[in-house]
């Protein structure tokens, strides 16, 4: 490795994007070379300056996700959750609009009591338990 090769690879050396054996080889050269030591010092300053500048005030606003979300349109699977943590009751109901499937579960203090499947009959059971 000569100075030209070392200095060309310095940006990736300081950003840690080189294989371990190449880093070792470069480190050995730089230790004994004043020119490459100066070049490395300069590269670190450049990197720090760039990082400082690029990090300043650079996060997108929440409006971007809101705009994307609205473009995606309504979700395919409507989901409804009903909960009453004050009473220690948690009732979950989900419906798949495509297959008109209705599922439900009732939890009391975190314990699942019954899972309601597809049939309407079982949904009535849930309704009674909720009452």
């Amino acid at each position: 490795m000569n100075c030209c090769h070392i200095q060309e690879a310095l940006p990736w050396y300081v950003s840690g994007q080189l294989p371990a054996d190449e880093i070792r080889e470069m480190a050995e050269h730089i230790t004994g070379c004043n020119d490459c030591q100066r070049a490395l010092s300069l590269m670190i300053r450049l990197r720090n300056a760039y990082m400082s500048l690029a990090q300043a005030g650079t996060t997108p606003s929440d409006r971007v996700w809101a705009a994307i979300d609205s473009k995606l349109g309504p979700s395919h699977k409507p989901h409804v959750d009903v909960g009453s943590f004050l009473l220690g009751l948690q009732v979950g109901v989900s419906a798949n609009a495509r297959r008109t499937q209705v599922r439900g579960d009732l939890r009391i203090f975190g314990h699942k009591v019954r899972i309601i499947g597809r049939e309407r009959k079982e949904n009535h059971v849930l309704s009674k338990q909720e009452r």
């Binding site: 940006p11 994007q17 760039y50 690029a54």
Partner: peptide, 12 residues
């Protein structure tokens, strides 16, 4: 190029 190397840590 500087951005991709320094900020995104991309290889060559």
């Amino acid at each position: 190029v500087m951005h991709l190397v320094f900020f995104e840590h991309l290889t060559v």
